[in-house]
Write a protein that binds this DNA or RNA. Structure first.
Lengths: 226, 226
DNA sequence: TCAAAAATAGGAGATATCTCATATTATTGT
DNA sequence: ACAATAATATGAGATATCTCCTATTTTTGA
């Protein structure tokens, strides 16, 4: 982990101002952290000392179960908070957060800002919005995971992550995220190829037929459009 | 649905004051609603006009999927908010909320309070705490549902809901909650009986052996105690 | 640069869970 | 009080998903 100092720090603060998230001046004690790919921003079980705000990069939230299974709970992107649970809750089992690309965050030390943050309506309103989206998202994923087989959830995931018609996520990551075994993931991917929805190209998969995948994915959505 | 008026309303407001949740006076426009068992407090897909705060009773959050499956996402108890998602988010697919016992709520009309609520740090802090717990809970349930078979999740649920050593939840509700088929739920319950953990008494199940159930349930928890 | 670790790949059998069908028993509304 | 509805109960077969195994290829760290 690197901490940007002087000009570099100031440049980030200027180019990615977060002053609109607060109604008090917040720059003074902000640290700018850079994490490398694979590095842990927060280690599972260890309470952080900062509220983080992601400026660039992507990260993953992990939790380890007693049976050894690891769940990838969610992805984190630019403009997400990290450590907000620990800010608000005295008691909380901290989940692990791992950078999946180079990730730059603003780190706001709790010891300087905690009290003021918890009294600032502007910030709390932002946080509330963030948390409500998070809670909704998790509730959605939860109910979907129970109500639909992998086929549907994978179709959705492929459509969401495909880049110019090519799906290239790592199988191991996807297993943790969708909560299925490696073996089964390959099995369903093979089915998609057999049916002609996808075509395997080396380690990647090209989307050959869009609409059957869309159909599978659409089954996940509830009647939001009535 | 009944709306309490005059003395009855005032009595509730006095006996269950929620003034500590706000830093502005909030009594004037509060309505006190009573919903009967089975009644819908919010209908799926219909945005509510109130922020509710539950005073007594229990309710359930449901969502219906396109494949007809219904997920019971969570239970709601006294001191929970209802409609907070709609307060904060312009765009949100409203989930259905059904009273499972007689339920009394304070109903705060958005049209009178929305603006002030979103500017009140005291309230927002409470809401943030509520939402963070909700998000954490959903994330936990999500990852557990993927990582463990029904056996473990059911053991946990039995221990949580058993009343003086007797488990008496309705199977249909539990199916929706744990996201399994009725058939499979009965199957695993029958296994628990075979193994001597439970003993069927009419429609109820008496816990005969506590510790194997605890063992199964404990597998759900992550290493929070390190 | 090379050995170790991680990721990919697929076979075979086990198990968790679902669907459908059919009865019986409670609960509820009128 | 009774018909309609919801809940309980169980069998049998299908399918989704897992575990374990083994082999190959890619990536990574010293």
């Amino acid at each position: 982990m690197k901490i940007y100092k002087k000009e570099k720090r100031q440049r980030y603060l200027d180019e990615h101002s977060i002053s609109h998230l607060f109604s008090f001046p917040v720059e003074e004690f902000i640290q700018v952290h850079e994490y490398g790919r694979g590095e842990w921003i927060i280690q599972e079980g260890m309470r952080p000392d900062f509220l983080f705000y992601v400026i660039e990069g992507r990260a993953k939230i992990y939790v380890t179960h007693q049976n050894g299974k690891v769940s990838l709970i969610n992805f984190i992107h630019a403009n997400d908070f990290i450590g907000e649970m620990e800010l608000v809750n005295e008691v909380y089992y901290t989940k692990g957060i791992q950078a999946s690309t180079k990730t730059v965050c603003f780190a706001l030390p709790f010891r300087h800002y905690r009290t003021r943050m918890l009294e600032d309506a502007t910030f709390l309103r932002e946080l509330t919005k963030f948390l409500s989206i998070k809670a909704t998202y998790m509730a959605g994923k939860y109910s979907q995971s129970l109500a639909f087989p992998l086929e549907n959830r994978l179709a959705d995931f492929i459509l969401q992550t495909a880049d110019e018609g090519v799906y290239k996520e790592k199988h191991v990551t996807v297993c943790d995220f969708l909560g299925v075994s490696y073996r089964h993931l390959l099995h369903v991917l093979a089915q998609f190829c057999e049916k002609g929805y996808l075509k395997k190209e080396g380690r990647h998969y090209r989307i050959e037929q869009h609409s059957p995948l869309v159909e599978l994915a659409e089954k996940l959505t509830n009647f939001s459009h009535q």
